[in-house]
Amino acid sequence: MSEQSVATAPPAGKDEHRQSPPALVRLRILMHDKPILGPLVVLVLSLVVFSLLADNFLSAGNLSLITQQVMVIGIAGLGQTIIILTAGIDLSAGAVAVFSAIVMAKAATDLGLPGPLAILVGLLCGGVCGALNGALVVRFRLPPFIATLGTLSVFYALGLYLSGGATIRGTDMPAIMTAMGKSFSLFGTNVSYGAVLLVVLVAVVSYCLLYTSWGRHVHAVGDDVQAAGLTGIRTGRVLISVYIVAGVLYGIAAWVLIGRTGAASPQSASTLNLDSITAAVIGGASLFGGRGRVLGTFVGALIVGVFRNGLALAGVQVLWQDFAVGLLIVGAVALDQWIRKGSR
């Protein structure tokens, strides 16, 4: 939040061990103050490395492909990030998105609703799913991990039931429902509408988190629920609102997913649950709550996309792509622990 210089407040007492921090400590403080720094450095480094490894990596066409590959994960990752900010986690993110996609598609094909209305129904479905998760966490006091582990199966099963296990083709739907997969030309590059939507959403969610009371309350709840309650913040309301907003974001991800894959299928996006967490964590969001930026998640999603794409172009087997992403996650969480070590 702060654009000011690095924290070097003179301690009230003379703590000798605080006087001249060694370089490593200064680096930690810097990364603590600017959480976006780590992911950004990793992204730039990976871009450089892969452009050296694969000739066509930096081509306009390939970069456009990467953005198309990350747009669904990126949008779902935004929802995941605000939940992680409250020290929660949402294992059902992908299941909500897939269920919403099927509801959206069914509303258009079976009910014959006009496109925009069908999309709205899909977003509403995401919001209701989120509200259910939020209610389980707030009213029934379930740990978010358990609550969403349960709803993950529930939403997945509902999606299967509603679709009858069959894929609904995008060609059967109104054009607007697949529009997010379409591209327009900008400076000779193909830019998909879904990627633009992702950027817009990053800006909107960032604004809400950094410049509204709601955003500050989300951070405060993630930091320390009891403390937040004592300052008069209605923590239950904040938590439920967070899960609802996340659900709606998964609904938007569902819309983009239909465009990207040209269909609504109960089998699609099976890795989205964990991919959204991956994007948030690599982007610097702390699973302990209170720390994280949606801009970081955006960069985190790009890092995953760049790694997968770059390794594929370099001719590396898929299993090593997973291996690399796994290392990234472990590295990011270890880094977060190290950054926090000094402050608590």
Partner: peptide, 11 residues
Amino acid sequence: YQTLAVAPSLD
């Protein structure tokens, strides 16, 4: 309060 009721990650 004894626990101060502050949000550590906020400024």
